[in-house]
Simulated assay, not measured.
Amino acid sequence: MAIKKNDTVRWNTSQGETEGTAEEKRTKEFTFEGQKFKASEDEPYWIVTSSKTGSKAAHKESSLSKK
């Protein structure tokens, strides 16, 4: 299940499952909105945009599922 840019994906939040769009794959350590993430080729992260709120967040690829 390879996620690609612009795929619709789902993830869990404290308010329940939400969905949005996969925007950008990160495979190296990065900072997003003041928080550090240790992405790698084996454990990539995606910057996703929520369909509900329009806000962006970083999520591990393993925590995302393709819709």
Results as ranks from 00 to 15, higher is better:
Glu19Arg: 05
Thr53Leu: 05
Ala57Tyr: 12
His59Cys: 08
Lys5Ser: 01
Gly54Pro: 14
Thr53Phe: 13
Lys38Ser: 07
Lys56Pro: 04
Lys66Leu: 13
Lys56Gln: 09
Thr21Ser: 10
Ala57Met: 14
Glu19His: 06
Ser65Gln: 07
Asp42Gln: 11
Ala57Trp: 06
Ala22Val: 09
Ser51Asp: 14
Glu17Thr: 12
Glu23Ile: 14
Thr8Leu: 11
Ser63Arg: 11
His59Arg: 08
Glu19Gln: 13
Glu17His: 05
Phe37His: 08
Thr31Ala: 14
Lys52Asp: 11
Phe32Leu: 09
Ile3Val: 11
Ile3Lys: 00
Ser51Ile: 07
Thr21Gln: 12
Glu33Ser: 11
Lys5Val: 12
Arg26Gln: 12
Glu61Pro: 01
Thr21Cys: 02
Lys4Ala: 10
Gly34Thr: 08
Arg26His: 15
Lys28Ala: 09
Thr49Tyr: 01
Trp11Glu: 01
Lys28Pro: 04
Glu24Phe: 05
Lys4Arg: 07
Lys38Trp: 13
Trp11Asp: 07
Glu43Ser: 15
Thr13Pro: 02
Ser51Tyr: 12
Phe30Arg: 01
Thr31His: 07
Ser14Cys: 04
Val9Arg: 00
Ile3Tyr: 02
Glu43Tyr: 04
Gly34His: 11
Ser40His: 09
Glu41Tyr: 07
Gly16Tyr: 10
Glu17Gln: 10
Glu24His: 13
Thr8Met: 08
Ser40Cys: 05
Val9Glu: 04
Thr13Cys: 04
Glu17Pro: 08
Pro44Met: 08
Gln35Gly: 05
Ser55Phe: 13
Thr13Phe: 06
Ile47Asp: 07
Lys5Tyr: 05
Thr21His: 04
Val9Lys: 05
Tyr45Gly: 03
Glu33Asn: 07
His59Trp: 14
Asn6Gln: 14
His59Asp: 02
Ser55Gly: 11
Thr31Phe: 05
Thr49Arg: 15
Ser65Ile: 04
Lys36Cys: 06
Glu23Leu: 15
Ser40Ile: 08
Lys56Trp: 02
Trp46Pro: 06
Thr8Ser: 12
Ala39Cys: 09
Ile47Gln: 02
Lys38Leu: 12
His59Leu: 12
Val9Cys: 02
Lys66Thr: 02
Lys36Trp: 00
Met1Gln: 06
Met1Lys: 14
Ser50Ala: 03
Glu43Asp: 14
Glu43Leu: 08
Glu24Leu: 12
Val48Pro: 00
Lys60Asp: 00
Ile3Thr: 01
Lys25Ser: 02
His59Asn: 02
Phe30Val: 05
Phe32Gly: 03
Thr27Val: 15
Ile3Asp: 01
Thr49His: 05
Thr53Asn: 06
Ala2Thr: 09
Trp46Phe: 01
Ala2Tyr: 03
Glu41Gly: 04
Lys60Gln: 13
Ala57His: 04
Asp42Leu: 06
Lys56Glu: 09
Lys4Val: 07
